[in-house]
Design a protein around this nucleic acid. Structure first.
Lengths: 273, 273
DNA sequence: CGTGATGTTGATTATAATCAAGGTCTGTGG
DNA sequence: CCACAGACCTTGATTATAATCAACATCACG
């Protein structure tokens, strides 16, 4: 039995490993090592600050459940959210290159994270090359997401930015089985959306409403759905290519066939423009 | 004689290696391997497109001299410059994780680059762990720069953004000995500045002039200088921490003592706010 | 059943984009 | 040496976009 399939059919893998398994083929030894590394689990409450800008950076986080953000407060007092982290994401993979944090980290929801000691990351790079390349892949993906946010903030209008960001979140959640093929639960307030997109709260609210009026999105409670996928992708100038960097394994064998189909559909619509 | 010093006193090292030497202690074997890797040098003309968005991504570039940019054209036809690359920088270190480019790359000036085959990068990761960690460090630095641009675009005013970006370039150039302690030559047009900062050409020009009027910068020909460093750093909300990630070796032994002093001075002013 | 966090909306102001026109500089060919 | 073109810079006028201000609505929760 090929290892990838064996992996995929085990239900109890951590979100991070499920995610890594989509891009690299891990040996059983690597799987065991990585899962064993996540013993030290810590829970944070919604809104809690996990790490403060300027503080010494001592540990890497791996999200097991919940959402988190990294952000910076400027001298003028404005907050810019730089990244949103979802289950399976790593925060501070590059910790061995940093003396102190240059961003703060907050829990956006109640959160379970595994603490990973810096030494463990070095150990991975020394002993488990495939696993290490998986971590590198994860870092590259974050870089691509950040680059895409740059394009959004510099060259897209407020409504496009919002829509683009929502589509990004949806795709990322689809990849980890935390969204349905109709939509997803947005676990952020409008203020947090605004801070992530470089917009004011009021303007964000108005543009959200405008997008709803134009039927490009529908929001009920916190559930965001996209009635007309093709129109939304076109309006937002969205192409999930930046998220799919080198995905080798499909979701098919993990019981998420439908989500995988949805992702492919999004990619196809984007490709033909 | 310690290897780091030996390295530093050799004049003929490539810019990339000088840069890597500031953060990791390389063995002679690693130095030789890395320098040997840069045989395949290619020259590009100013304005030439080195790689086009969507094209297959076949090679990593290491800049030996000149400036380059990565950018994206949105569906609406706006260009967003995502990164500026200087001598010693790598473009596409993550190439082994990408099928095709999601950005275009242009030469901003006449350019000399070493082409590095993807296999070589894998080889480095397998055989030369210290050198590999140097490359990782370089990637992390790019990530930090990108994050800082995000903060600028989302949460800083146009004039702050411009000033911040100029200070960033100055510090980066100081680190590679391509700026003086008074200032540096800006090898970009105002249109390119605008595209990098998410501003219009006209507004960029007006804000540049306003910064000059306020004596926060002075520009003559292409030479940018900073008459009142303390005021400029404060106005721009600038802290070079995001650039200095884990610098272990100083520039002192490379004949750039004065530049190193200047960098430290900038860091000190930033720190005390 | 109040209190605080969140969401909604209109009015006003600030910021930056767009439009338009002209200026400077550099290199090139006559 | 001059005339010209093209790239780049500069400035004012107008318009569009988004921020700020203010008020109120809704919801969850103790």
């Amino acid at each position: 039995m090929p290892e990838a399939v064996q992996m995929a059919t085990q239900g109890a893998l951590s979100p991070a490993l499920r995610r890594l398994g989509q891009c690299v083929l891990l040996s059983q030894q690597e799987i065991d090592f990585f899962e064993g590394m996540q013993n030290n689990v810590v829970a944070y409450k919604r809104g809690e600050t996990m790490l403060e800008d300027g503080q010494p950076y001592t540990c890497c986080f791996c999200i097991r459940s919940g959402w988190a953000i990294s952000y910076r407060i400027t001298a003028a007092g404005r907050r810019q959210i730089v990244s949103v982290f979802l289950p399976g994401d790593f925060i501070g993979l590059h910790i061995n290159f940093s003396r102190q944090a240059i961003f703060s980290i907050d829990a956006l929801t109640d959160l379970d994270v595994a603490l990973i000691e810096p030494m463990r990351l070095i150990e991975i790079h020394q002993k488990f090359p495939i696993l290490a390349s998986g971590l590198d892949w994860s870092a590259v993906r974050n870089l691509n997401i950040l680059g895409e946010h740059n394009v959004s903030m510099g060259a897209r209008t407020a409504d496009q930015r919002i829509l683009h960001f929502l589509l990004e979140l949806w795709c990322r959640l689809l990849l980890i089985g935390e969204a349905s093929s109709d939509g997803f639960v947005l676990r952020m307030t409008q203020q947090q959306l605004a801070d992530a997109l470089g917009l004011s709260l009021v303007h964000t609210n108005k543009m959200l409403k405008a997008l709803e009026r134009r039927d490009l999105i529908a929001i009920e409670n916190r559930m965001v759905s996209v009635p007309d996928l093709e129109a939304a992708i076109k309006e937002a100038d969205f192409d999930p290519a930046f998220l799919e960097t080198f995905r080798t394994a499909s979701l098919a064998s993990t019981g998420y066939e439908k989500l995988d189909e949805r992702l492919e559909q999004i990619a196809n619509i984007a490709e033909k423009n």
